[in-house]
Design a binder for these strands. Structure first.
Length: 325
DNA sequence: TGAAGGAACCGCCATT
DNA sequence: GCAATGGCGGTTCCTT
């Protein structure tokens, strides 16, 4: 039996606390015997459980930190608390990793993992709203805000909330194969592999624009999304070299400037598709893609869909649709 | 859909 | 000695 330990401290998010139990608990062998055991553990016997900024209830934590070392897999859910990781928890996580245990975080749990240094030099993801802040707080971690989850050899990170289900299904797939993950997915009424990354869920009007000179430059770029923008002209506007511009963007957003610009353009196209009846050709022109073929190619690559399918999905106008996903 | 040219990315190193 | 910056060149990605 594969042992899974879920770390719970004050402010742990209820949904993500329950996700590992829900996913791993639904995996069984041919005879129906469970393949995973899931235990909630932590440094304190009682914790506050939160959701969306509210304290929901107080919960007893049945197991101590010793479970982290006994487990095969450790899951660190998001916590709505600004407190740092207690030293004994950080030490337990590092020791578990040193013993070859698999460690995964969900949503802002990546920040707790990053505090321990276990993400240093690794690729990781987190909820898109927190990606820029985390990238600047933990410069040694290569955050990719477009991924639903990232598996970097024994240390895994998942994006926001429901992406924790994708991450856990990925671990089931790695442990017991695609059929086991598909069966678990069916029980959860969840696709065993969600395509498209979290880029498709980033709200266009919530584009990550930081403070300071880079933030001003980002706003300047957003104001000109419908026009051709070359790296050299952006660097000239910022009064810095292309190389330094590249560094500033990596520091504040975690991605290079033109990748960031592309994300904003896709966001603009998404917004226009959702809120207007403009033709795809016109949407492409107004979001800086030039023509519809280029827009379709980027939608296919980034969102794994087409502009028309996207519009149907998010406006709920297609037959058989039950509304936005 | 595939090829070619150009642009962007990024590691490395020199300079300030 | 260190940090920030900028240039170079090989590689990768994007556009046509």
């Amino acid at each position: 039996m594969h042992a899974v330990a879920v770390l719970a401290m004050d402010g742990v998010v209820g949904f993500e606390l329950a996700t590992p139990g829900q996913v791993f608990g639904s995996v069984a062998d041919g005879s129906g015997a469970p393949l995973y055991s899931v235990r909630v553990c932590g440094p304190k016997p009682q914790v506050r459980v939160s959701a969306a900024g509210m304290d929901l209830f107080t919960m007893a934590v049945p197991f101590g930190l010793g479970e982290l070392l006994a487990a095969d897999t450790i899951v660190v859910p998001a916590h709505e608390s600004s407190a740092s990781v207690p030293p004994e928890v950080a030490e337990a996580l590092r020791r578990a990793h040193g013993k070859g245990r698999r460690i995964a975080s969900i949503c802002t749990g990546a920040g707790l993992l990053a505090e321990t240094g276990l993400l240093d030099g690794r690729a990781a993801t987190t909820h898109w709203r927190h990606a820029a802040a985390m990238a600047s707080r933990f410069p040694l971690v290569r955050f990719d805000p477009e991924m639903i989850y990232v598996d970097d050899g024994g240390v895994l990170t998942g994006a926001g909330v429901t992406a924790g289900i994708d991450l856990c299904l990925h671990m089931v797939r790695a442990d017991h194969g695609a059929a086991a993950a598909a069966a678990a997915g069916r029980r959860l009424v969840m696709s065993p592999h969600r395509g498209g990354g979290q880029a498709q869920f980033i709200a266009p009007d919530e584009a990550v624009v930081g403070d300071g000179p880079t933030g001003e430059l980002m706003r300047w770029m957003i104001d000109r999304l419908d026009r051709p923008l070359a790296l050299a002209s952006i660097a000239a506007e910022a009064h810095m070299s292309v190389r330094t511009l590249h560094r500033r963007f990596l520091e504040s957003t975690g991605v290079p400037p033109m990748r960031w610009l592309l994300t904003q353009r896709i966001g603009r196209a998404q917004e226009l598709l959702e809120t207007t009846s403009l033709t795809v050709e016109e949407v492409a022109r107004r979001s800086g893609f030039g023509d519809a073929a280029v827009l379709r190619e980027h939608f296919r690559r980034k969102l794994e869909t087409t502009p028309t399918t996207y519009r149907r999905r998010f406006t709920g106008t297609s037959a058989g649709s039950a509304g936005p996903p």
